[in-house]
């Protein structure tokens, strides 16, 4: 065998995390790329999806008290539902949350929505950190079931099933979303993005369309949260759902080219690839640099955001020009 299973497992990890980011990017692309709704709280909807899925699919977890000391605060749920049911519940709750946040701000300018969603993500994260009896706080929830449990445990097969499940979902999403945006419904979305008042004048209920799209995008982010939970098998609020996730997804969509699905997916693979490589190369870097690599990477994300938005806002893959015939 030319490549040993350890390396393949490692690459498989990169692939399924990229797929997860691709789901987030597809959700954000639907909201911003197609409809012009700017979501600054991607991490919040992602978090809600992950935790709701975890509550649905894990076995019960009562508080663990040893010698009068609370070792583990326990968490809500524990219904041991099948994984697909967990995905549906996560999508529904995240989508509903997105609709609720969007409702007061949809009729206002785009920046109000950005501020409201940013605040929402922060508040959700604070609740997830502090509401220990529901979310187990910063200790996190371990032992989330994966797609298929192998006996005896096999890291390679495990990773490959995750990649396969993720790829199948991504392909399905891509087909469904492509049909949606090419339909008359998708045409209205692009019209809202280009000129909302003109669309309103044509008799379209633009606020209704915006609400649908925002909820749908939120549901996709919830799906990404579910996928995160079943692949990483551990959720914890302070690191995985930090605002940096939101900003990374922005970069992915802007790099790939907003307004087309392939761009969002390519962006996810490229940008997460940079992060993954930086982790892989950490051992090669000199000692003084090794600790600051994550910060330097985030600074690069910042530079990339500024440079791209100024000089190449259409990204690598330009949105297909549609000409009236």
């Amino acid at each position: 065998m030319a490549i040993d299973t350890g390396t393949l497992t490692n690459i498989g990890f990169y692939v399924f995390v990229s797929i997860m980011f691709a789901m987030l990017a597809l959700g954000f692309n639907l909201q911003w790329g197609y409809t012009g709704l700017f979501n600054a709280g991607i991490a919040g909807f992602f978090l809600i999806g992950a935790y709701v899925a975890v509550f649905a699919i894990t076995p019960p977890a009562p508080p663990l008290i040893i010698g009068g000391i609370k070792v583990y605060p326990g968490h809500l749920g524990g219904y041991s539902l099948p994984l697909p049911v967990g995905a549906l519940v996560a999508m529904f709750v995240s989508g509903a949350a997105a609709a609720l946040v969007a409702l007061p701000t949809l009729r206002l300018r785009a920046d109000y929505l950005a501020i409201a969603t940013l605040g929402f993500a922060e508040v959700v994260r604070i609740f997830a950190i502090n509401l220990e009896s529901v979310t187990a706080g910063t200790i996190g929830i371990p032992g989330i079931p994966g797609p298929i449990e192998f006996n005896p445990p096999d890291a390679f097969l495990n990773t490959m099933t995750k990649v396969a499940v993720g790829a199948a979902i991504l392909l399905g999403l891509l087909i469904v979303l492509q049909f949606m945006v090419e339909s008359p419904w998708g045409r209205v979305l692009r019209a809202v993005r280009e000129d909302e008042e003109a669309t309103m004048a044509l008799g379209k209920n633009t606020a209704g369309y915006k609400l649908q799209v925002f909820a749908l995008g939120g549901a996709l982010m919830g799906l990404a949260g579910w996928f995160f939970a079943i692949t990483i098998n551990y959720v914890e609020p302070s690191g995985s759902f930090a605002p940096a996730v939101t900003f990374s997804v922005w970069v992915m969509v802007i790099v790939g080219g907003s307004g087309n699905h392939r761009g969002a997916i390519i962006g996810a693979f490229v940008i997460y690839g940079l992060e993954w490589l930086s982790v892989q190369l950490k051992d090669l870097a000199p000692k003084f640099l090794a600790d600051t690599i994550p910060y330097i990477r985030l600074m690069l994300v910042g530079v990339l955001l500024i440079v791209l938005i100024i000089y190449r806002p259409e990204g690598i893959l330009r949105e297909r020009k549609r000409v009236l015939r």
């Binding site: 911003w32 012009g36 700017f38 600054a40 785009a110 920046d111 950005a114 940096a244 900003f247 922005w250 802007i254 985030l298 600074m299 994300v301 910042g302 530079v303 990339l304 955001l305 500024i306 938005i309 100024i310 806002p313």
Partner: peptide, 12 residues
Amino acid sequence: VPPIVASVGLGL
């Protein structure tokens, strides 16, 4: 929106 994106980049 583009200045918001740029300002987040600056913040990072």
